[in-house]
């Protein structure tokens, strides 16, 4: 029987990027050189923080600031949060941040010579519902240059942070868009070894999520680590 405190399954081989990814320059001095210590999962690792909409109010529409519409292509992103056992992860917090339509972040560190949009901040927060579904509205973020290599550009992407139900389930990731020619050149995207795992970072255009006369819709599902069925067998 799966219980709340059961340990998480081991990470599936090649499904996660290597910290040491030479093509991504910032990893050079930041990736640990030593093999991580594999520790048993105790209550510290199997439980995690809970966030409620009462304390952390939802911000489900990034496309409007102070009642004014941001520039760009309005989109709806909808999907489901499940675990590796294909069980929905209900009532879990999803943090969202992204660049504006011109590819510029509302952040002092972003010096890209693209216009700021006073009606776009780029931070959001939603919660999955009782069946794991979430949805938010935003504008499609623009591609932007970075200094990783000559003429380097990040593909259009949205950043996400999810907490799940335990410390070992925490994930920070990025969602990409279908058909983006920059994906084949992006060392961060390409750092995921398994092509199937990589492709699951790409949202799918979805006509059923698309709102007539309003916004295109994209489907993007999250899979969080699943729990083992037999907690007592954990070494």
């Amino acid at each position: 029987m799966t219980t709340e405190a059961a340990p998480f399954r081991q990470i599936v081989a090649n499904s996660q990027p290597a910290n040491d990814t030479p093509s991504y320059g910032s990893t050079h001095l930041r990736h640990p050189a030593r093999v991580p210590l594999r520790i048993p999962q105790t209550i510290t690792e199997t439980t995690g923080p809970r966030f409620t909409p009462a304390q952390f109010g939802p911000m489900p529409d990034l496309s409007v600031t102070n009642g004014k519409q941001a520039q760009g292509e309005r989109i709806i992103v909808r999907g489901r949060v499940v675990d590796e056992n294909n069980r929905p992860v209900p009532h879990t917090m999803i943090e969202i941040w992204q660049a504006n339509a011109g590819g510029r972040y509302d952040h002092p560190g972003d010096q890209h010579d693209a216009p700021m949009d006073p009606n776009f901040h780029g931070g959001g927060r939603v919660f999955s519902d009782a069946d794991g579904w979430y949805q938010f509205t935003t504008i499609k973020p623009g591609a932007y240059p970075w200094r990783n290599h000559p003429n380097a550009w990040r593909p259009n992407h949205i950043h996400y942070s999810l907490f799940g139900t335990g410390f070992g389930q925490r994930i920070v990731t990025q969602m990409y868009f279908p058909g983006d020619p920059l994906l084949a050149l992006d060392p961060i995207f390409l750092a995921v070894p398994d092509p199937a795992a990589r492709d699951r970072l790409i949202a799918a255009f979805d006509i059923d999520i698309t709102a007539p006369e309003w916004a295109l819709g994209y489907r993007f599902d999250f899979v969080l680590r699943g729990r083992d069925a037999t907690p007592t067998e954990q070494a």
Partner: peptide
Amino acid sequence: MLAATASQTIG
């Protein structure tokens, strides 16, 4: 079984 979504940098 599904595999967990890949991690990406927080940037």
